[in-house]
Design a protein around this nucleic acid. Sequence first.
DNA 1: GTAACTGCAAATCCTTTGCTATGGA
DNA 2: TCCATAGCAAAGGATTTGCAGTTAC
Lengths: 131, 131
Amino acid sequence: MRNTKQKELIFNIVSNSFDHLSADKIYLKARKVLSNISLGTVYRNLNQLVEEGKIKKIKMNDKDCFDNLKEKHNHFICKKCQKIIDVKDKIDLSHKIENNLIVDYEINFIGICEDCLNKEEKYGNGRKTSL
Amino acid sequence: MRNTKQKELIFNIVSNSFDHLSADKIYLKARKVLSNISLGTVYRNLNQLVEEGKIKKIKMNDKDCFDNLKEKHNHFICKKCQKIIDVKDKIDLSHKIENNLIVDYEINFIGICEDCLNKEEKYGNGRKTSL
DNA sequence: GTAACTGCAAATCCTTTGCTATGGA
DNA sequence: TCCATAGCAAAGGATTTGCAGTTAC
């Protein structure tokens, strides 16, 4: 495994982003630094970085997004706008299930984000239920 | 929203399956009953059923799978073979996060399943770490 | 009766891949 | 030097969609 400027750049973009960027967004950011980097290279490096455990892939409805590992956290995903909001991890799931080896876990909270709730209220649907 | 035999069939297939079937697997099963059902119809109905909250979509690496809601449970996903194993839900996450409305949550344990562990051992990699 | 749904096939679009040239170790 | 990686472009493959005919209500 070789260290290329392309790979380092892509790692830095994902690592220093507060958003959860898709491959094409990462590609656009990367092009600002290496103007002739290709989308294929972005994909190849993203997959490699995931494989190496340096970043994480988030499978979203349309396209996959990528997340840094700076601080263990979980996600809140809005059903309406697909926004991903980081949730600080206060949950301890130090279990071992049967004979399978657990190396990680992820918790996704699913719901409707504040923005979409506000939009709903405007249209008179003030329904509020919780877990 | 209309009740068609296609939709009912697809719901039954997902509901009564212990596996986590992909759209094409569901399509094959459906064809055994309605021999000229189309893949497009399967996709359309699966999406509708997810929308109605009657089944759940599991986003996997390659293709999406579909799961019944018979009993609240979580998933263990094998990194190697992508197998999905149901995990009974003993975890209570009755939180409300900030101003976002949580309607559901999902926990995915990620690791290596028993089968793959056994295969690894055969090749001399007996590494065992846990959370 | 009519709007939603089906089947079929084509289109879409994210992601991967083959190939040749390049560059890191 | 040598092999992993880059760039480019084309292929792949899951999912969606347009359309004309059909059907549930």
